[in-house]
Design a protein around this nucleic acid. Sequence first.
DNA 1: TCGCATTGTTGCCATTGTGACAACAATATA
DNA 2: TATATTGTTGTCACAATGGCAACAATGCGA
Lengths: 324, 324
Amino acid sequence: MGFTERLLLFLRVAESKSFTSAAEQMQVNRSMVSKQIHKLENELGIRLLNRTTRSMSLTSAGNEILVQAKRLRTVLDETRLQAQCFHTKPMGSLRINSTCHFGRHYVQKAVVQYQKLYPEISIELRLEDKMVDLIAENFDLGFRTGYSADSSLIYRELARNRLLIVASPDFLQRRGTPQSVAELEQLPAAVYSSNGSLMDKFKYYESNGEESYIHLNVVYKTNEQDGLIEAAVTGNMLSVVTASMINNEILEGKLVPVMTHINLADFGTFYAVYPHRDLPLKSRLFLGVIQKVIGERVPIWEQRIPDFEKLYVNRSVPSALISS
Amino acid sequence: MGFTERLLLFLRVAESKSFTSAAEQMQVNRSMVSKQIHKLENELGIRLLNRTTRSMSLTSAGNEILVQAKRLRTVLDETRLQAQCFHTKPMGSLRINSTCHFGRHYVQKAVVQYQKLYPEISIELRLEDKMVDLIAENFDLGFRTGYSADSSLIYRELARNRLLIVASPDFLQRRGTPQSVAELEQLPAAVYSSNGSLMDKFKYYESNGEESYIHLNVVYKTNEQDGLIEAAVTGNMLSVVTASMINNEILEGKLVPVMTHINLADFGTFYAVYPHRDLPLKSRLFLGVIQKVIGERVPIWEQRIPDFEKLYVNRSVPSALISS
DNA sequence: TCGCATTGTTGCCATTGTGACAACAATATA
DNA sequence: TATATTGTTGTCACAATGGCAACAATGCGA
């Protein structure tokens, strides 16, 4: 472990505020960390960390060096990335992060096809709905719904993913098919909810273009998206879902889209996210594969809804669907 | 040797265009270099250098990686520098580069005093008149005459160093003391010359402020500055020298300044040069010492010329003399 | 207030990766 | 064509490195 590696180790320690957890992240022994940090402090001739056995804080010098260590990490990451851009055949490994549902249903499928095409690449797929730091955790690609402007990441639109309201035919027969917002708001509904953010209010555009909101009568909220579909199929309530959550339930007659004339605000467009404008070959190829999986022009989930274009004709189409 | 060290090694190889000389600079075996470059190429998955046994060139990928390697070196250098700025007592080593004459006569003296004050610092002083890359060669301080705008270095004015015309009393008695430029141009002269740049034309300002040039009758040119003094003392010619070249020759009556009413354009102000705005303590202290050596307000060499201020009263004074 | 568990430190030791050496191969120059 | 220079490769001894385990310090909870 050289000077540079020590700096990166220090960065880890500072970011996790703990020798022990830094050691775990780097998969080395605690004692290593202690020794290397000492060595680094000797090399630099300054104390970087004030540490008692139970707590630690950066010295003022440590703060400055931390900034440098971050720059260092950036340079090294970009160097590796640059190199990968020159690859003529894909190689190495691919670390992918995705939201859970999309990951299970689509990324997973793409991974299988990708591995068949390029078996020499080892893939790691991690699914989690909470936002993670792609750079710090060294992911090559992320798949997210919605755009997050604060980061330095690059976002590329993959496919639109419209909001639908669905219910089982059985349910509709019993409770009546809602024709107006007022009727809709009477019916029991299942909605997605996560981390305290409850989605019970949905923006839509009235025919004159004005914004309005639907306040649903929420009786079931879950962060398990398949649960929403199941809840609707079971027939006790209607569900607000995105098109990508629907498998064959509509084709098989288990679910029926309702209130299709309502122009619900667009929601949850899928993006591929990556840490740098220049994509390495291996990542570029993966995007190609997943684009095939989810459909080039029309997302596969819309193809599973008969007459989707006609049903939802009054909705605005996203500006551009990427063709790889 | 880790990934980073390999990148820096690659940088060395690319800059010196040779495995062998890179090995010498890094003080390692040739075979090391070969192996490490191979390893780096494997890690990056790309070929960096096209090499035959006798020649080498960068690949296009190598060119990009080279840029990154340079960034890397910068970050690491700045990190070390930052750390040194936090030192409360001077430590480590000090690498100094200086022009030959100034180095022998003044830096040398400062080094001795400095070592007496801070014996724990090891000093390396390299004298050479040709410009060197302070950053690539890892110098902490450089002493140069004249300002070079192209680089990213920081320049700090140390002392003015005026151009004088001197001759021995003996010579002046035999050939007459020149009173006008025309007379001056008749007399044989010794001037400084180096690397093909012959300094036989000197700009001066006439009393009305207009620029003019003196074309000397050069009979001796040398890059050995002490030789100019000696030539004048010997009495066969006059010499154009800078004030810093004169030791006690004028005090001892061996040389006499002539044409002191001519307002020769300022030339060769001494600068301290360093790679970054923030100076480490050890460097700051050295600048303090050398400033003491060469004089705080009036350069020591001017103090060795009686009535300097009166003789050269009509010359413009440099904007600011730095007081440490 | 006391005890426990967590966390950083230190000394010791086996292992592994490292760099030196030397022979080889290739090519530019004389 | 011969020679010297320069990059490559295989082998081997050795030292630095990182893991282990015991230790020390301290914050938190009971």
